[in-house]
Design a protein around this nucleic acid. Structure first.
Lengths: 319, 319
DNA sequence: TTGAAAGCGGTACCAA
DNA sequence: TTGGTACCGCTTTCAA
């Protein structure tokens, strides 16, 4: 059984308070006694009970990280990065993976109450009924969530998709591409493309939007034929996964990239470094976002903020 | 501030014990009172405090998952899969990412004491001094760890690298490859190759071992030239990442895979589905391992087990 | 410099 | 069917 302060106190022949002073390196205790007690504690293998400490202090070092289930690698990467940062700052990450259902979310967050002060919600799309959120005691940080309750208490960190996309499309235009296709089904990708065309001052170029059913590898692969028929000389995919699918199609069909067609994806999937050719893409501001989250967790009761971080164009072989 | 049992009791004009009965759906309370109390609780937005409950019950639903820092995607995937499984079974995963240092490990595990009953250590390579482990109150499950203290109390789950590798090499041999190179620096990969050659009954074939400095993309890439000079017609890489590096080299050098040379990797990195060509590999038994971990977490004080799961050959375009 | 004691919130034994 | 209360382990106030 785990050793408690009381046991150490008995063993050392002092009071609990004194043991506590010794272990906490507080003042008000003689050096002799401190040494003595520390030795006893070490010898007995004392391990503090965090549940008891948290209960008493009404606070904790645990930070909850919530993501959806069928999220792709980018979410796993984001949350993994955040975990590392939190630990460096003395927090302990608890991860929750939720079916996109308000019910399970509610029960999990309830279970965490008293253990978790701060909860980070990644890309949460379903409403958590506002009254539920308000009744929960934790500090909430919504990261990259579309529907955030307009309550006073919630922090928001947003990611601006358009900035990186604009830079990507501008690069394509400036390097002489004139028939640029955007493929995908994610609506927030459109603005960046539009912005690029609007601000481009070179010779005229054409933009073509192809709406697809999905955003996965297969969707990009299946699009290959139609894409080449369209005589495009550059293509932007809503996700890297789609772009990888097209790379596969091109490889099989003997299409040369970037000679025949330039390719840009979105997400900065690490695989983009290794594909043939390596994939140009638009990167999420992971470091910036997660750095801010750690700050918020540290000054716990900060007044709610809404912050927007831009995405960035990453140039590789495919353009 | 969070609502407590006491507040509900006052509001409902009953004792704490009665509120407790109502909420816990225990017997010994009239239906009328139960209804009444449940309504009051719901209205006040009662959320139980887990720290208090754990303290009192001396147990918890939290399960710790510990991995090293600079682990590659395979570890992230394994732990992510485990997180999902644990949640399905009503546990809450706490993740710890540790520099490979016994000191930080010790302090983190101490911090978890009282909160975490079961700790899963993934691929932990450094010794945790045995006396430290013994003094910690948690149940430990060592997964795929090379150096496990021989103490009574620890579960062990091992992964047999050789089984899948043997099948892979046998496949190469049986499909007529006769100069098979194995590249890498991970010693446990050797046995499978040896076994395959030993049990192969066809015409004679040659095996060549090339030791490398590392196991990453660049290492595979840099090996390309030497590999082709060796006139190998098949190659097994210790990691998928190395194999991807070689794929890149081959792509740039105009080498056809699998026509000129067959390629097999190790790890079943998901990217292998999408590479050009898709990569044959050896897969870890993730589902089996994690399923067993959940079982162990459920029957908490099981007598310690050592279980070995085999790896499996996965055939794709590259062979 | 030391220690007694009052909680933190929830659980459950025991008595009414 | 109810309620009083001791306790889980730790922190900290206050008094000695």
């Amino acid at each position: 059984m785990a050793v408690t302060l009381k046991q150490i106190a008995e063993e050392a022949g002092v009071s609990i308070r004194t043991v506590n002073r010794a272990l906490k390196e507080q003042t008000g205790i003689s050096d002799v006694k401190r040494q003595e007690i520390l030795e006893v504690a070490a010898h007995m293998g004392y391990i503090p009970n965090i549940a008891a400490r948290n209960l008493r202090l009404r606070k904790s070092n645990f930070v909850g990280i919530v993501t959806g289930t069928n999220e792709n690698d980018i979410f796993i990467r984001k949350s993994h990065d955040l975990q590392q940062r939190l630990e460096v700052h003395g927090f302990f990450p608890i991860v929750g993976i939720l079916q996109d259902s308000p019910d399970t979310a509610r029960s999990m967050l309830s279970e965490w109450a008293g253990m978790v002060d701060t909860v980070v919600l990644f890309a949460w799309r379903n409403w958590l009924p506002e009254d539920v959120l308000v009744s929960l005691p934790q500090q909430f940080i919504f990261v990259d969530c579309t529907q955030v309750p307009q309550n006073c208490r919630f922090h928001q960190i947003k990611i601006d998709r358009s900035s990186g996309i604009k830079d990507a499309i501008l690069f394509l235009l400036e390097s002489g591409r004139s028939r640029i296709v955007r493929c995908g089904s994610i609506s927030d990708r459109v603005v960046g493309v539009e912005n690029a065309f609007r601000s481009f001052r070179g010779r005229s170029a054409e933009k073509i939007f192809i709406e697809t059913g999905g955003s996965e590898f297969e969707d990009g692969y299946n699009l290959g034929k139609a894409l080449m028929k369209s005589k495009a000389d550059a293509v932007f995919f809503d996700t890297d996964r789609m772009a990888f699918g097209f790379l596969k199609y091109a490889w099989e069909a003997g299409i040369r990239i970037p000679d025949d067609i330039a390719v840009v994806g979105f997400d900065d999937d690490p695989w983009g470094n290794y594909s043939c050719p390596s994939l140009s893409t638009v990167a999420h501001p992971i470091a910036e976002v997660n750095g801010r989250i750690v700050e918020l967790a540290e000054r716990r009761s900060a007044s709610p903020e809404t912050i927007i971080f831009p995405t960035k164009f990453v140039k590789r072989q495919s353009v």
